[in-house]
Write a protein that binds this DNA or RNA. Structure first.
Lengths: 348, 348
DNA sequence: TGTTAGCACTCGATCGCATCGAGTGCTAAC
DNA sequence: GTTAGCACTCGATGCGATCGAGTGCTAACA
């Protein structure tokens, strides 16, 4: 176990390194501390901390930097109740969510921008994806003789749309009655059960309204498949290029993998979804990330909820040398605000 | 005016530099040409071309690179009918647009990815924005007692949605009749005329169906404002990080402004919209770009159309040392394919 | 036993300097 | 008009000297 003094030194080293991005020397700590310890004493402690695995030395004559384990200890034990957000910042966060909700799309995007602007890191927001959502309504709007738009509204308020071209031999009227039947029979059905219910209960009824049985079944199948298909939430990025501001990514070859990974929204989603748990806040430091490209990064995520159910994730990606003391409470407040807003709207 | 030989040399220099990204020397050209000219002769011609402004010398003892003017001449006069796409590539482009259209969103995104993968540059796609589009249909789907989703389908097939919270004192039924009236009176109206027509013709009728006149007018105003509000097309990027692959952007400080600019979708849109003209293809080389951040880049854009009307833009951004000979016909084919697909769907 | 001053040592960063070589411009000859 | 020859330029590369921040170790001190 670490002594109080060691903890204090570790903490100071992290705090310093987070700001300066340069190895921290014993003299620096000695001057900042008010315990009146000399650099030599600090040096001894630092050597011990290194031996214990909390610190590293880039090269023999340099200062120390925190190891992954050092950051982990810092986050887990040295940050208790240490909120470095100014009161001003907290009110600013709150005010972000007072306005109308409008389009969820916009809320997510703005949250990402807000986060990245405030932190100089890269923000990631996973749009809400409600698992126990039900089908609310289906609409067909004809554009012309052979094309129509199929609209689907989920109970969570999400809207999905798809342009369909009418199959040969199916009239608009037939299509409309198909949709009417689906609406009557399926609204209220959980999304994941749509397919089975549709095939069990409705095939025959649909077929009755259409001349071509084969075509009817085929069409129904297509529509239903789409309805149930994975409507994976979207990924919203903010400040991806902030990555380039960080000294550790000044070299293009360091930055490239991360930025490229960020471009593959599907992978990003997968990585973040896995953190979407009842655990409100997750911190993954360096190698703790499963994703290879993030081994030099830290990922801090918070889950937001609707009516207590986790539906999405907001997060920040930066170098392992991240300002955890600011980032963690920031994400906490923000996810709280977002959850409250969404709950107010969509629960009742 | 340039002699044939000068043109040929200029052309070879551009072709070489595009590939190697290194200044081209006289010996290189001399060996590649089959006219049997010595390096010295080439050198004389190169000196002339430089004096005329078509070439530049990074420093005294280096080879030549094309100037902005050189690229311009190359694009305008040396590229006639020079299609360097393989037959395979052309069929691949065509096959990209044979499938169902599904969601326009996806088509745009995939086009961007396809373009960036094929070229190693950054692709930009401006989602379709139809100016003379009309209102097709309006739908209100209630989610619960105080929240509903308002859907709008435009004649171009685009779908816009917005979550609205019911104002105090307005019942769902009132809201529904408002939407019914709007549908009856406004469908078929050009988007830009919605506001004036609504205010002129409908206010009274709406008020008749609602208890609170003030509230009715206010609500109508809100909805109508949203309907007419600028539904600006979205921007889809592909391969933004490809920028970092280019030697000229190996230095983070060179790449950062461009990537940051690309993140501001609104600015990107503005820049590309201005190229959306009857002119099918636009090439903006280096300083020809109005945007300061693109002064070291070239932007090649092609307009795509629906039924002959320009509605969107696809483009590629790369270093001025861009492979115009490939990029230009590529964008040509792609915009053609996209136009055909969209026209087939949405015109009738 | 913990703390500290002193000191030799390490090692990256920076600078100057020599070298190398691709490529040029110029001149004179063909 | 073309070309061979040649001196010259200038970035790139490599090497060694120097500098300095920071260390580890030792010995003295409280």
């Amino acid at each position: 176990m670490l002594t109080d003094r060691q903890m204090m030194i570790l903490r100071m080293i992290v705090d310093n390194y987070v700001i300066s991005a340069e190895p921290v020397g014993s003299r620096t700590i000695s001057k900042q501390t008010d315990l009146g310890l000399s650099a030599a004493t600090i040096r001894n402690e630092m050597a011990d901390l290194e031996e214990l695995g909390y610190l590293e030395q880039p090269h023999a004559s340099a200062g120390r930097i925190p190891s992954q384990m050092g950051y982990r200890f810092y986050v887990d034990h040295l940050l208790m109740g240490d909120t470095r957000l100014s009161g001003q910042e907290i009110t600013r966060i709150k005010s972000l969510f007072t306005e109308r909700i409008g389009e969820m799309e916009r809320v997510a995007q703005q949250t990402a921008l807000f986060l990245s602007n405030l932190t100089q890191y890269t923000a990631v927001v996973l749009g809400p994806q409600v698992y126990d959502t039900t089908l609310k309504n289906l609409q067909l709007v004809a554009l012309n003789d052979h094309t129509a738009v199929l609209l689907m509204v989920a109970s969570s308020g999400q809207v999905y749309n798809r342009t369909v071209s009418m199959p040969e031999g199916v009239s608009l009227r037939e299509m409309e009655s198909l949709v009417r039947i689906l609406n009557a029979r399926l609204s209220g059905t959980p999304m994941y059960r749509i397919r089975s219910r549709a095939l069990e209960e409705i095939t025959h009824e649909v077929a009755r309204h259409m001349r071509d049985y084969e075509e009817a079944v085929h069409l129904l199948d297509q529509v239903v498949t789409w309805l149930e298909s994975d409507k994976e939430g979207k990924v919203y990025l903010g400040g991806a290029t902030n990555m380039l501001l960080q000294p550790e990514f000044r070299d293009v070859h360091k930055a490239q993998p991360v930025l490229t990974w960020l471009e593959r929204h599907h992978d990003v989603m997968e990585a973040l979804r896995s953190d979407e748990s009842t655990l409100q806040l997750q911190v993954r430091i360096g190698g703790e990330n499963d994703v290879q490209s993030l081994h030099d990064c830290s990922l801090v995520t918070a889950t937001y909820t609707i009516g207590g159910l986790p539906v999405g994730v907001i997060g920040l990606i930066g170098p392992t040398r991240m300002d955890y003391a600011r980032v963690i409470p920031l994400l906490g407040h923000l996810s709280k605000g977002l959850s409250d807003l969404l709950t107010k709207f969509y629960v009742n």
